[in-house]
Nucleic acid binder design. Structure first.
Lengths: 228, 228
DNA sequence: CGGATAATTATGCGAATGTATAATAGACTC
DNA sequence: GAGTCTATTATACATTCGCATAATTATCCG
């Protein structure tokens, strides 16, 4: 089962930096969790995928639970970082910025067939562990706040309560499309989810976001000929 | 750990119908899967929760995998049944029927803190097992088709492709709100998700669905004083 | 009333899991 | 270059897992 050396032999002793080892173990944990869920993310499987022996997990993280927590924290940080990246290099017009943010959430690397698996794999551990739950809640609200700021910048007249509800609604559209696209990746044409997302968020907010499609990769000018 | 009789004693032999036993085992499987995920739904835990010894699982279902499949099938059937129930006894006006359908999807028993746990717990098994995947896909499309029919009945003028995309969008709103409401049950006021859902779906379809709020429990006449 | 029969429980077994501990190998210091 | 230290590997262990099989109990039929 091990890849590089013959079975029965001693795994060659190779030294590496602490950061590399931690990263490799966290990456392996996320990969296995995404692919096979909690049942697949065993200590031995993680170690093998990371190219080390199980003992190193204890050495660097103390226990499997702590490695799991570290992997989840890394996941959350990456999510918000991607959200910020989406706005980098986009023009100053509020509508365009919002459209870029929505589009980025509905195509790779955010929309990825593995993403929902990872999310589902962690769900129960998150709900059972108060520390992870707080981290999750913080990450979710951070994302929604980013969205809410972009919506507020549109300059519509709306009460704070209404603004909050609009942010919840737009976030729900994005989450729902993200979910469906991840679970049934072949159920939608390329760019279809982005187009639906832009139109829906625009409808909820009373703006036309599809006019910014030309700035968005993989969409261009409505390839299926449907213009409105 | 066992509830009704002293440890060390032999569990009393009590006979029951095959249907009761199957139902109890399936129910126990779903409960444990929803609460603790795949790691918690062990053969022993399921049997204990069902008030039975592990051997009965093999006797009635052959293996744990088959029990798991049966539990998932039961879950899917229940979902679509609830969707149909929501339309029972509702008037004939298309807008009202659509509003009732949306509202029913965003409050108990469909919106339930356990629902998302159950869904997440099964995700990897579903993706790994072609039979379960087909069943999942069928259930999802059935639900979306119900929604699409309700949307078509609104009588708007729209191409078939556009109708499909509207159904995907509305389904995404519902799914996203369902997800957020399940994961963070205390993050939203009572009826808030239903109201947001009605407004968003209405905005996407160009109709006002909030005018049917008075027919919907827990909402009444916009309790937070916000009328529009 | 007394065997068949089927449902239910109890026990056993091999494999896998997480973790603790011992053995080993390379790097660093003087 | 010998000695020490730490990263890494290997081994051991108790527990739990799913499953197979044996033992037990109630019901059914004569």
């Amino acid at each position: 089962m091990q890849t590089t050396f013959l079975a029965g032999e001693r795994r060659p002793y190779v030294r590496d930096s602490e950061e590399n080892r931690r990263m490799a173990l966290i990456q392996a944990t996320q990969d296995l969790m995404a692919e096979g869920g909690p049942l697949a993310a065993t200590v031995r499987a993680i170690a093998e995928r990371a190219g080390v022996t199980p003992g190193l997990i204890r050495h660097y993280f103390g226990s499997k639970d702590e490695l799991s927590r570290a992997a989840y924290a890394t996941l959350m940080d990456g999510m918000t970082a991607k959200g910020a990246d989406a706005l980098y290099g986009v023009g100053a017009e509020p509508g365009e910025r919002l459209a870029a943010f929505v589009a980025a959430s509905l195509r790779p690397p955010v929309l990825d067939s593995k993403a929902v698996g990872l999310w589902a794999g962690y769900l129960h551990q998150v709900q059972a562990d108060p520390a992870l739950l707080a981290q999750h809640e913080a990450g979710y609200l951070r994302y929604r706040d980013q969205l809410q700021v972009l919506i507020a910048d549109l300059g519509r007249i709306a009460s704070p309560a209404r603004l909050r509800q609009d942010a919840i609604a737009c976030n729900a559209v994005i989450d729902g499309l993200w979910l469906e696209g991840s679970v049934l990746p072949h159920g939608f044409g390329p760019g279809e989810l982005v187009r639906i997302g832009l139109r829906s968020v625009g409808a909820i907010l009373g703006r036309d976001l599809l006019r910014y499609s030309m700035f968005i990769p993989e969409i261009g000018m409505a390839p299926d000929g449907e213009t409105e």
